[in-house]
Computed example of a mutant assay.
Amino acid sequence: MPEVIFPGPEGRLEGRYHPAKQKDAPIAIVLHPHPQFGGTMNNRVVYNLHYAFHQIGFSVLRFNFRGVGRSQGDYDQGVGELSDAAAALDYLQQLNPDSKHTWVAGFSFGAWIGMQLLMRRPEVTGFISASPPANMYDFTFLAPCPSSGLIVNGTADRVAPPADTQALVGKLHEQKGITITHHEIEGAGHFFEEPHMETMLGSVQTYVKRRLTENSR
């Protein structure tokens, strides 16, 4: 997979970019978990989500937030990381000016950043939020949530308890004009350890394919 270096708010950002064959292919960025707890773009969930999107026909970019790997800068409590995500989306859009669909996917801390990015970027047409840490971070900024998406988590998640995710989904279901799909995977932990990874990826691909089909009618 091609390594890429692109400009971020605090210097260069390191990423991996996988272009689709079609020039007007949909695009997606994938955001990794918490930088201070070992989160990188090579996290297994992030890596597998990246390939899941590419297999559907997306041009996909995943990258390291500031201070991770070869990305410059220092951890910034999520504020700077949101700016990094916006820069990554800018870069991906520049590479794919003919794309009609833009998706944001994030895992754990990356899900929190991704949901914030939705609020800033009206062109985002769909999102995947895997194991959102609704117990650790405030998601009330999603008022209203600007696009429909999939929230997926495990019933055995001890990092981000299912009850908190269910409460988040419940609040989003009250909003009009969007549809939040929620898939809770029985027995899966925060990191979707085997054999639950394939179930999670299948759920994501099924959902994204359905949305693309609906949008093409």
Rank of each mutant, 00 (worst) to 15 (best):
G149N: 05
L95R: 05
N135M: 02
K100N: 05
F127P: 10
E184L: 15
H190T: 13
Q175V: 03
I180Y: 09
T213S: 12
G67N: 11
A20F: 06
T125R: 12
H54L: 13
W112M: 07
G114A: 03
T181M: 06
F107L: 13
Q22F: 12
S216W: 00
E14P: 00
T179S: 15
A111F: 05
G177V: 04
L49S: 04
A156E: 06
A143V: 08
F107G: 15
K176R: 13
L61Q: 03
D74W: 00
Q175M: 12
P19C: 06
N215C: 04
Y17S: 06
H34V: 04
H18P: 00
N43E: 06
G177S: 07
G187C: 10
D90E: 13
I128F: 09
R121T: 07
L212F: 08
I27W: 00
F37P: 07
R66K: 05
A85H: 00
F107R: 11
E198I: 14
G67L: 06
S131K: 01
I151E: 08
H54D: 02
K171S: 12
V159K: 03
S99V: 01
Y47D: 15
M115E: 02
Q55H: 11
G106M: 03
G170N: 14
E194S: 13
L49M: 14
L89Y: 03
C145A: 13
A163D: 07
G11C: 09
P132D: 02
A105I: 10
L118I: 12
I56C: 10
M119V: 11
Q22W: 03
G8D: 00
V204M: 07
P133C: 10
E81Y: 05
H183W: 08
P195H: 06
F53G: 12
G39H: 07
A130N: 06
G67M: 05
C145H: 02
T155D: 02
A167M: 15
S129V: 05
Y47M: 11
L168A: 08
G38H: 04
L31E: 01
F191T: 15
H32R: 08
Y51Q: 14
D138M: 07
N215G: 14
P144C: 07
L172R: 02
A25V: 01
Q94M: 05
E3W: 03
A88G: 03
F65P: 08
E14L: 11
S147H: 07
P9G: 09
L142Y: 14
G110P: 06
G149Y: 05
K23I: 01
Q36N: 08
A130L: 07
P97K: 09
H54R: 15
